[in-house]
Amino acid sequence: MPTLRRTLGLLAIPALALATALPATATAATAAHADTASSRTVLPDAAAAGWLARQLVDGDHFESVFNGTAYPDQGLTIDAVLAFAASRSSDEAAAKATAWLAKPEILSGYLGDGTTEAYAGATAKLLLAVEVRGANPASFGGVDLPSRLRSLQTTEGRFSDRSQWGDYSNAFGQSLALIALHRTPGDAPTAAVDFLANSQCADGGFPLSFGQPTCAGDPDATALAVQALAATGRTAKANTGLDWLAAHQNADGGFAAAGATTSNANTTGLATQALLSGGRFGTGLKGWSRLVKFQQGCSADPAVRGAVAYDATGFNAASGTRATAQAVLGLAGTPLSTLSAAGARPDSPTLACPAPATR
């Protein structure tokens, strides 16, 4: 995978020559792409992760605002930890974020108390991040994450929430659980793998929610499901899912969320990661190029250079952190099953731009 990442980085090089040869009538979009790609001294994924690291509140977490009140956002913080590892950068920020996640009040607020409240998707996602960081998942913040996750598996193989508020588990959590448990000594339970594999729609896509009257493929859910099934040896099912993703790629190389038509960075990031890690380099590179075009270059405000916009309408701070975190996964192309923070550079790279010309 490091070879693939170097190859992806080199794809930006031709734009450097293009930038000096563009005619005056070149379109704004082409010029912006050349500007974005040509001025980097770091790879696109590292530039995006570096920007993301500088947005952390108090240097160790993210928050979400609801009705004017800021709340800790453990899920987005974990997305950032995964992005830092994928980009092989920002390791100091990742370490601080991991320490924040291990605080008892932060941990219980996300996972539940483990008795009356326990959330499968959250537990699976945190377990994966802890594994990626090389920490001890059996004693993270005093919680045995693999054991708790396994306790949430039902007899049919589904990982379900235990909560007075209901069961909101879905294909995201199921896929992340398989990937995370595959990385443990006990491996992912066969019944759980079967459950996800059997949820596949007739056309090859995977639904977000299980047990619906009509099976409808969801691009984000399918991107995670194919990674989970590939990791656990269900190659045929994974390949059919990849075929479905390729068939749902937009003409601009990006991917739209379920029910939408316009490409966005979040869905494109997950789909591109799945395609590249699954060996679908033609479609994967198209997705990668779309993500690069969403990235903010030297013509953008210095405060957002390196960030990734949610869509082609431009950068929006409200969606920029989550879009950037998920876009990095596609820009790096490393599968979640082998993702590791080992050897990542400690600093958070910046997008180096030439000094303004003086007269």
Rank of each mutant, 00 (worst) to 15 (best):
T30M: 12
L270A: 11
G75H: 11
R359Q: 14
L111V: 08
Q249I: 06
L276D: 04
W288I: 04
P335L: 09
A49N: 04
A318C: 00
F159T: 05
R359Y: 13
A307L: 00
N266F: 13
G279L: 05
T350R: 14
S337T: 13
N136H: 09
G112Q: 06
S337E: 11
L52M: 07
P349E: 07
G241R: 02
G284R: 11
S151P: 07
S38T: 13
L196M: 06
A223E: 02
A37H: 08
H61T: 05
I13L: 15
A251V: 15
L285T: 14
S64N: 08
D60S: 15
T232P: 04
T41E: 14
L242T: 03
L208D: 07
P137L: 03
D60I: 10
Y71L: 05
G259V: 04
A202M: 08
A19N: 11
C215H: 01
A49C: 05
P146Q: 02
K125W: 03
T36E: 04
T350Y: 04
L285F: 14
D194V: 09
G333D: 08
R345A: 15
C298G: 06
D347M: 05
T123I: 09
T338A: 10
N266H: 12
S39R: 15
G142A: 11
A191Q: 12
C215F: 03
L4R: 14
A247L: 07
S299P: 05
K103E: 15
R5M: 15
P354R: 10
D220T: 10
D311G: 11
A48Q: 02
L11T: 12
L128F: 00
G278C: 04
A34D: 05
A325T: 02
G330R: 03
S277P: 02
A118W: 09
T235L: 10
A31L: 15
G141T: 08
S108C: 04
D218R: 00
T30L: 15
I179T: 03
A202L: 10
G109P: 05
D79A: 04
G284L: 12
A17G: 14
D144T: 09
T41W: 13
A188E: 02
A256P: 06
R158F: 04
S209W: 13
N239R: 13
A307P: 00
A83M: 06
L339H: 03
R345H: 13
A202P: 01
R5T: 15
A260Q: 15
L152V: 10
G306E: 02
P137Y: 05
S169K: 01
E131P: 00
L145D: 05
L127Q: 01
A325G: 02
L331Q: 00
F294R: 01
N250Q: 11
A17N: 09
T272C: 03
W165K: 10
P354A: 11
F255C: 01
G134R: 09
L336R: 03
N316H: 12
D35F: 09
V292I: 13
L224T: 01
G297S: 08
R162P: 07
R162S: 09
A53G: 10
M1D: 14
A256W: 07
A312N: 14
A271V: 07
G59P: 05
L52Q: 01
V132C: 05
D301N: 14
V328Y: 01
D220K: 06
K96F: 10
P349L: 08
L52W: 07
D58A: 14
S163Q: 06
G241N: 01
G233T: 06
V132I: 10
R183K: 01
A231D: 09
L76M: 11
D113N: 15
T222H: 01
A129H: 03
K103N: 10
S277C: 03
